[in-house]
Design a protein around this nucleic acid. Sequence first.
DNA 1: AAAGTCGGCAAACAGTTGTTTACTGAATGG
DNA 2: CCATTCAGTAAACAACTGTTTGCCGACTTT
Lengths: 224, 224
Amino acid sequence: MNHTSHPSGTPTVPAAPAAPTAPGVRQAQKQQTRRALLDAALGLLEQQNLSGLGVREVTRAAGMSPAGFYRHFPDLSALGVVLVEESLANLHDMFRAVFAESGGAEQLIDRAVEVIAAHVREHRAHVRFLARERHGGVREVRGAIAAELRSFAEEVAAAPAVRQVTEGWPAEDVRMLAELYVDRMVSTAAAFVEASPEEGERIARTVRLQLRLISTGSRHWNGS
Amino acid sequence: MNHTSHPSGTPTVPAAPAAPTAPGVRQAQKQQTRRALLDAALGLLEQQNLSGLGVREVTRAAGMSPAGFYRHFPDLSALGVVLVEESLANLHDMFRAVFAESGGAEQLIDRAVEVIAAHVREHRAHVRFLARERHGGVREVRGAIAAELRSFAEEVAAAPAVRQVTEGWPAEDVRMLAELYVDRMVSTAAAFVEASPEEGERIARTVRLQLRLISTGSRHWNGS
DNA sequence: AAAGTCGGCAAACAGTTGTTTACTGAATGG
DNA sequence: CCATTCAGTAAACAACTGTTTGCCGACTTT
């Protein structure tokens, strides 16, 4: 994170020799190192837990001085909160992507598994972080994740494809079905995140079968 | 962990004044402080992660000197391994207790929820530990837990109540159903472990419904 | 072009950590 | 009863931790 040195590199190209520092450069640099801190933390959290992370460890991985950390976060838990928010926002996008287009149960299931796989491919560190801290040592974090998952369940319960099959059900039954779907999807993402490609294929087949079984059960559900 | 003091208490009852130290006293005392270490660690792990635990922390909680730790374990990870083994052995007992007596699907479901609740009541710390480290920061521990859960799934697949309904199914379908049951039961235990009594009642109702839905799905399953 | 803001740094602070050392005294076995 | 074993101890070790301090120099505003 050395924005300073600039050791007279490439004296040619005088087009922007000492660029008049258009306003906003400072804030941009700050955001850049802030992101470097977040990414460094995410990287370390691949093999560690949030409750065991250290300030010096993070700054070292980000290539900056320990003191610089406090220009961005008052605490390590503050950084953790940001990571939770990012991860949950991404996961929310994933859920919306699954239920964006409607279609038959079969197509919805195939689409769900594809979207989950793509999400893990693109946000591996975030997903691993969520899986790890969902039952991790920080109560505040666990609570935030649990609350967001409940909200996802409500969203799933309100999705057209689900409403169609749960028409006339008592509210509690609808909720348990939605929670079942959410839990299965999150667990699947967590399973994808640390699986080799061939294991991933097996997991995908398994979860497709499981979602189909749940779908079958819901179509034959009698509220007794 | 002071087995020493013995300040000449109750001079009456000379039956065993300075008991001739029947053989085995030493080993018994050792096992006792070893257990104290394990219990102290389990206690600390209620609010912390295995990867963030410290030797001094554990010995302090157990009321003994840091150096004494190394008379029992070479490492903190060695202690962690023991905790994993204990927790998984207990969980194994739980699964066997669920499928011990056979009966109709309804009775099996009710029995399962009761057994899970009782297990959590009696082994709260162990269950929390498993939930936390199942996706925790220690690869070795994650692997051990995953392997054991797979073996539980095989056991569930072989249970009479399950074999009855999966007669004629392809092996892969049987496995996905068994894994679905195992995952739901473990997740339920994890949910119980940090829930107030009234939340616990809601969780119990929800999981009963979900297990019934899965059971319904399996009875209407067509392998297509 | 001068004055001010502020992100990042080196250094220092007091505590903590894991692990080893030599030791003590009770349990053990002859 | 005496010699041996050995669980637990206190002290010391270097290495590490979170956080604060004063400072510098590049960005920003006037």
